[in-house]
C-alpha cells in the first residue's frame, strides 16, 4: 500500500512537472496588416509594435520565438489547432473570445474611433449614422460593436477582410465612415498622406455603458490556448517586468508619442 502511494505521489509529481512546463520555444502569430501594430516590413518579415512587444517578452523569458503570419479570420481556430502557441496581433480581450482562448494581461488599451472625411456632420451614434455605409474589419471589436448596437438600428454595416480595404473604400467615397480601433486608425490611416483629409468624428469610444464596455473589452492581450496556463503565467510575469524596467516605454516611444497603456 505504501509502495502504491509512493508511485501515486511520484506520478503526481511528474504530471505536475509536465503541467508547469517552462516554455523555451514559442511560436507567435500575427497578421501583418494592422499598422503600426503589425505590418510586413521592407524585408518581408513581420514588424511593428506587437512584434517588438512579442520579441521583448521572449527575450525576458529567455525563450526562442518564431513568428507565423496568419490571416485575421482564422487566427483563433488556428491557435486552437496548435498551428502556433500565442497570438500577438492586437487582439482585444472580449468575453466572446474568452470562450475560446485565454488572454494575458493587457499590453495596451484600445478605444474605438469613427473615421470620416474632415467636416463630415456624422457622429458615432446609431441615430446619426442611420442609413449610412460604415465599414469595419470582419471579426474585430469594431465589427462586434457595429453589429450589436448600430446595425439593428438601420446603419448599413459593410464588412471587409482587411482593415486597409475599408480605408481604400473610405478614400474612394464608397463608405461614409469607418469604425476601427482608434490607435490603429491613427497610425494606419490618419497619420499617412492618404488619410490627410480625414479625422475622428466625435470623441474616442470607450463604451458609454456597461453593455458597450463589455463589447469594447479591457484592452489588448496575448491569446493562448486555455490549457496553457503556464505560458500565460510566464507571459504575464515577463510583461510586468518589461513594464517596470522601462523596456515597454522604449518600444512604445518608437510608435506613439503618448501613453497607450491606459489606466
Amino acid at each position: 500500500m505504501n509502495r502504491f502511494a509512493a508511485v501515486l505521489i511520484a506520478l503526481g509529481l511528474l504530471s505536475a512537472g509536465a503541467q508547469a512546463k517552462e516554455w523555451t520555444e514559442i511560436r507567435l502569430a500575427s497578421e501583418g496588416a494592422y499598422p503600426p501594430f503589425n505590418t510586413i516590413g521592407p524585408n518581408g518579415a513581420l514588424a511593428g509594435f506587437d512584434i517588438d512587444i512579442g520579441n521583448a517578452l521572449c527575450a525576458e523569458m529567455k525563450a526562442k520565438c518564431t513568428w507565423v503570419k496568419q490571416e485575421w479570420d482564422g487566427m483563433i481556430p488556428a491557435l486552437n489547432a496548435r498551428k502556433f502557441d500565442a497570438i500577438v496581433a492586437s487582439m482585444s480581450i472580449t468575453a466572446e473570445r474568452q470562450k475560446q482562448v485565454d488572454f494575458s494581461d493587457k499590453y495596451y488599451a484600445t478605444p474605438l474611433g469613427l473615421v470620416a472625411r474632415k467636416g463630415s456632420p456624422l457622429l458615432p451614434s446609431a441615430e446619426s449614422l442611420k442609413g449610412r455605409k460604415v465599414g469595419v474589419q470582419r471579426g474585430t471589436v469594431a465589427d462586434n460593436f457595429a453589429t450589436r448596437f448600430w446595425e439593428p438600428k438601420g446603419v448599413n454595416v459593410v464588412r471587409y477582410a482587411k482593415q486597409d480595404e475599408a480605408y481604400l473604400d473610405l478614400a474612394s467615397g464608397r463608405l461614409e465612415a469607418a469604425l476601427a480601433d482608434a490607435l490603429e486608425a491613427e497610425g494606419g490611416f490618419l497619420a499617412k498622406p492618404e488619410g490627410a483629409g480625414y479625422a475622428f468624428l466625435g470623441s474616442r469610444m470607450f463604451g458609454a455603458n456597461a453593455e458597450e464596455k463589455a463589447v469594447i473589452g479591457d484592452g489588448v492581450g496575448i491569446a493562448v490556448r486555455k490549457k496553457d496556463a503556464d505560458l500565460k503565467a510566464q507571459l504575464n510575469k515577463a510583461l510586468a517586468t518589461i513594464r517596470a524596467n522601462g523596456t515597454y516605454d522604449v518600444l512604445r516611444k518608437k510608435y506613439f508619442d503618448y501613453d497607450i497603456y491606459g489606466q
Binding site: 479570420d73 483563433i76 473570445r97 471579426g139 453589429t147 464588412r159 480595404e165
Partner: peptide
C-alpha cells in the same frame, strides 16, 4: 464586401469562431 453564400459563411465563422 458582397455577402454571397461564402460571405455569409465568413461572417458566421468570424462571429462564432
Amino acid at each position: 464586401t458582397l455577402v454571397d453564400l461564402t460571405g455569409a459563411a465568413r461572417n458566421v465563422y468570424s462571429k462564432h469562431f
